[in-house]
Amino acid sequence: MSRKKCLAVFASGTGSNFEAIVTACEQGKIPAETVALVCDKPSARVVERASRHGVKSFTFDPKSFASKVEMETVIADFLDENGVDLVCLAGYMRIISDTLLSRYDGKIINIHPSLLPAFPGARAVEQAMEYGVKVFGVTIHYVDRTVDGGRIIAQRAVPYEGNDIDELFGLIHAVEHELYPETIARLLSV
Rank of each mutant, 00 (worst) to 15 (best):
58 F>D: 02
173 H>K: 05
15 G>A: 01
131 Y>W: 07
66 A>K: 10
52 R>F: 09
120 P>F: 10
10 F>C: 02
47 V>S: 00
157 A>K: 04
60 F>M: 04
58 F>Q: 00
14 T>H: 00
177 H>N: 05
71 M>F: 07
149 G>W: 01
88 C>T: 09
74 V>L: 06
60 F>H: 06
13 G>R: 01
27 Q>F: 12
12 S>L: 03
116 L>V: 08
87 V>F: 05
48 E>G: 12
118 A>D: 12
81 E>F: 03
111 I>G: 09
53 H>L: 10
82 N>L: 03
154 A>W: 14
97 S>P: 10
147 V>F: 04
180 Y>K: 01
21 I>V: 10
49 R>P: 01
149 G>K: 00
13 G>C: 01
58 F>T: 07
172 I>C: 05
188 L>D: 10
114 S>G: 15
129 M>A: 10
89 L>E: 11
53 H>E: 12
26 E>K: 05
169 F>Y: 11
139 T>W: 09
169 F>N: 13
92 Y>R: 00
144 D>L: 14
177 H>L: 02
146 T>V: 13
148 D>E: 03
129 M>L: 12
78 F>D: 02
54 G>W: 00
54 G>Q: 00
56 K>H: 14
33 E>H: 14
13 G>T: 00
26 E>Q: 05
64 S>F: 11
150 G>C: 12
180 Y>Q: 01
12 S>G: 06
29 K>Y: 13
73 T>N: 02
58 F>M: 05
3 R>M: 12
4 K>R: 11
116 L>S: 10
165 I>E: 06
150 G>V: 15
121 G>F: 06
119 F>Q: 12
99 T>C: 02
181 P>D: 09
93 M>K: 05
27 Q>I: 11
110 N>H: 07
23 T>F: 06
51 S>D: 15
168 L>M: 04
60 F>Q: 02
78 F>N: 02
22 V>Q: 07
112 H>I: 11
149 G>I: 01
55 V>S: 00
136 F>N: 09
188 L>V: 13
162 G>Q: 03
104 Y>Q: 04
132 G>R: 07
86 L>P: 02
11 A>Q: 01
142 Y>A: 08
152 I>C: 06
120 P>R: 09
23 T>H: 06
123 R>M: 15
52 R>V: 14
44 A>R: 01
19 E>R: 02
173 H>I: 08
86 L>W: 03
125 V>T: 15
36 A>S: 09
133 V>K: 01
56 K>D: 14
115 L>W: 02
130 E>N: 15
37 L>R: 00
